[in-house]
Design a binder for these strands. Sequence first.
DNA 1: ATGAAAGCGCTAACAA
DNA 2: TTGTTAGCGCTTTCAT
Lengths: 344, 344
Amino acid sequence: MTKTPAQPARRTPTLEDVAKAAGVSRATASRVVNDVGTVDPALRLRVHDAIAATGYVPNSAARTLVNRRTGTVALVMSGSDGSAEQVFADPFFGRITGGVVTCLRDRGMRATMLLADSDKARRDALDTARRESDGALLVSTHPNDPLPQLFVEAGVPAVLFARPSSMLPISFVDVGHDVGGALAADRLADRGCRRIATIAGPADLPAAIDRLAGFERALQRRGIPYVHVARGNFTAESGEQAMTELLAQAPDLDGVFAANDLMAVGALRVLRDAGRAVPDDVALIGFDDSQPARLTRPRLTTISQPVEAMAAHMTTILLTHLTTPETPPTSVVFDPHLVPRETA
Amino acid sequence: MTKTPAQPARRTPTLEDVAKAAGVSRATASRVVNDVGTVDPALRLRVHDAIAATGYVPNSAARTLVNRRTGTVALVMSGSDGSAEQVFADPFFGRITGGVVTCLRDRGMRATMLLADSDKARRDALDTARRESDGALLVSTHPNDPLPQLFVEAGVPAVLFARPSSMLPISFVDVGHDVGGALAADRLADRGCRRIATIAGPADLPAAIDRLAGFERALQRRGIPYVHVARGNFTAESGEQAMTELLAQAPDLDGVFAANDLMAVGALRVLRDAGRAVPDDVALIGFDDSQPARLTRPRLTTISQPVEAMAAHMTTILLTHLTTPETPPTSVVFDPHLVPRETA
DNA sequence: ATGAAAGCGCTAACAA
DNA sequence: TTGTTAGCGCTTTCAT
């Protein structure tokens, strides 16, 4: 019965307990735990035993208090005002979250979920990101989102998912939307389509702009310069309407690229109703490889983005900025790929 | 130029700074900040001014260290082993997250996202939930998930989304799956269907069991005792297969209830291919009110769950447990409702 | 290589 | 009502 023998109380063990059990000072125990500085191998072993014996786990609040590091990254979903529910219902959101959480987990870190869908929410998100996280991952669903700029101005480390509409000194990951458009163009051209049309997305969305540009350029390269363009807003209904317009404008068309799957689904319905066989009369390609693309009959050929990988990479970029603050803004653009199914 | 006049340094202000600026002690400043104890109105005012002047915001790590409260709730997505990406791609997940985050935000709290898809991940989640959050919200995607039991045994405050397969002394929210099944039954019966079949979900899933039971009971009440049952696994493909079986078994059927929308989508395809007009020859009802339900033509009549409200309520239950630990486990079952569209 | 000691910013007894 | 003080658990100089 010398020092603190058996039941010191039902309290969660602290570094002090470990030190005592190992017969060393708290400082030494800390060094062992953090694997820093130099400690005698023998002592190190004793400390490790003590850790195992006591079941010690570091208290992160205490660490944060002294280190100014939280081990947490804020994942900010930024929607237009009051769009909370809508933002989260999009499977995209979940895939991004999955990529981020998985990546952070490998590094012993966590993600806290923030929602920025009003001016106040944006301020709060900035504040929380600054004070209770080490940095932020920003996912905007609409163009001209003021959030990225806010973070840049406040000097809070942040990385964007998708290129911002206006130039900003901030890192981001994105997919090559233009490359995706080109993939679709080549696929249509390769299968012999010559009277081609496209259902483009909103004209103020960088992603939509690039998909269209890449698509048109690729066709031009293939000697198919003229493309009928109708605009949609990424809903199935707008896809129906656009397809209807297109059919009226160019009844003889034989290939269509829709800037997302939902619009492609709408287009498919109109084509079917118009008695056009897909893909034999008209080939059709979507974008996103979303669930609806797999559910249509015929199944939708589409362009896929490596969302999880992008999210993971976005996370590692942020961690780099945290480790090496002087790192200049970096952007990484991922390659999309064609998912050949039945409509093209 | 008396005390700390202008630029005390570019350091984030602490309570000490506020106290100094207001000419009071740190304790008084703390009382004002936390609105606790009794403080002279005049001093209170001076402290508030000082807070505004310094731009003070409490340091949460320091608070956590002394309070043992993190202001954070762990949102644990629990999938079968290695199913990370799949879990997150489900829109359900996002809707739950949205409900939780919104509810927490109103109370000045945050959610940290955890993924429990392996034994190690489950242990880690438990540990993180215990050490870095005040409690946990558990969302299981598969039956017989060991996670809830783990939390119960560890005594970590937790609330489940959906009733656990085995009885457990733990709070949960759920939707009345049986009520939903009955809603579908009544709808079919009301529109005159008499030769009714159902595509049930996995026999080991409480939700699937209840949907089927509620459906059958309601039909029985209406004097339609016999129901053809085929099983699916909640995918569109399984829905196709089940519908094919059903059509073979009961070629004259005139109404079908599928236990989820995806299977209903599959069924719809088979019915169309079989030349059955929907809803005129065969009426069809799904469950979930998911995106695919809105995309089919005809649009799918379905049963909707108030997911966001359920998630929010799950959160408030957890907060109640945190405030009043002796609160016994509570369960709240929400009413689903019928979303009448075109297939029934 | 190791330990003593000084905080990190805050809350809560306890005194006054 | 207010202030003093003792920690919460940890890291990190600075001596030794």
